[in-house]
Design a protein around this nucleic acid. Structure first.
Lengths: 195, 195
DNA sequence: AATTAAATTGAGGCTGTCTCAAATTAAGCT
DNA sequence: AGCTTAATTTGAGACAGCCTCAATTTAATT
């Protein structure tokens, strides 16, 4: 299952060119970018692409996990720098959804549009881990309503992914997501920011 | 632009068979159902389909408006039977989203996935008209928060459409949508139903 | 330089969209 | 009933995708 490192130098170079082209294409238009175009940009035939990566999912797994992990790490870092559990969770969700709004590939990744891309799936899994922690803390501090579960937050983020990929785009969705999240806090620590 | 009624009987029959097949396919799998399959079921070549309807959007316009109008009418009727402005709006939204959950074609219609299907677009436009009325009433009665606009409700419904079409499906999205809607009411007339 | 294994090619099969010249066929007229 | 004509259907063909594989090319090794 794991792709072996090519023995020949030209093959290694081709793989590298394919990775570069794939990354560019995926980030530009999403994980459903045509493989033929990727091969063309890499200066190679599609057959070569399939030789190296087997399937679209293989190619996705070869280039996306690193990028997605980086993005999520940055978001987690920014969130964890906040002072309260509520602020941490709120910041995390807001920044992740910001990502989904601008990057189709991120949406595809988060909503597991290609479930066979297991490595990418694992990276996104870590994301839900972070959410669970942040939710646990926000529950303990009493800021997050008990009726709002970690699964709810995960669903909310997934929904952002679905919206980010839907065409034609309907800009209003962001407000709805923000509102759903805003409704999650208890009256206690509430300073509801106006939408 | 308007498709003329065929002069020959066989042509009229073919058009009818095509409409029937299209309706079935659209309802089963969404407005992106393959036109080849529709033609095959109708016992005709694709060329004939294009002769009659010109484009996919033409075919959509030929079969969907009636169905969608019917569904929305039923929902509107059920909603208007309710006793309070809040209940009317709430019921309307809930029932529309129920529709989106089960019928891919409805999602495609509501989110205007094929903007060129103008007749269908008009039908859905009426939908937003209803929303605006219900929202106006709910604002006047003081039950709906002022910060929640008709556009917000429309976006919320659109979001349901996007979620209903996204694959692989993530069942949790419904709760998020319901929650967003639940957060729209003022404390005044509130008997928040537990999620 | 010859051998061998690795890698690439590009054509071909598949599904799908959409078009159009040629062949077919229903309708209307005598 | 046959003839004519105009309406309609056909099916092949051009195009974009996905994916495969036998034949060929090419880098590495001896």
């Amino acid at each position: 299952m794991a792709p072996e490192r090519p023995r020949r130098r030209d093959a290694r170079e081709n793989a590298e060119k394919l990775r570069a082209a794939a990354l560019e294409a995926f980030l530009a238009t999403g994980l459903d970018a045509p493989l033929e175009a990727i091969a063309r940009v890499a200066g190679v035939q599609v057959g070569t692409l399939y030789n190296h990566f087997g399937t679209r999912e293989g190619l996705i797994d070869a280039v996306m996990p690193e990028v997605v992990a980086g993005r999520l790490q940055a978001v987690a870092d920014a969130a964890l720098a906040r002072g309260t559990a509520r602020d941490r969770l709120d910041t995390f969700v807001r920044l992740v959804v910001d990502l989904l709004e601008g990057e189709p590939a991120l949406s595809d990744a988060i909503m597991q549009r290609y479930p066979e891309a297991g490595v990418l799936g694992d990276v996104c899994e870590r994301n839900t881990g972070i959410v669970r922690e942040l939710v646990r803390d926000a529950h303990r501090s009493g800021e997050l309503s008990d009726s709002f579960s970690a699964d709810d937050v995960i669903s909310l983020i997934w929904l952002g992914g679905a919206a980010g990929r839907a065409t034609p785009a309907h800009p209003g969705w962001r407000r709805v997501i923000d509102r759903a999240m805003a409704s999650a806090w208890t009256a206690a620590g509430d300073s509801a920011p106006a939408l």
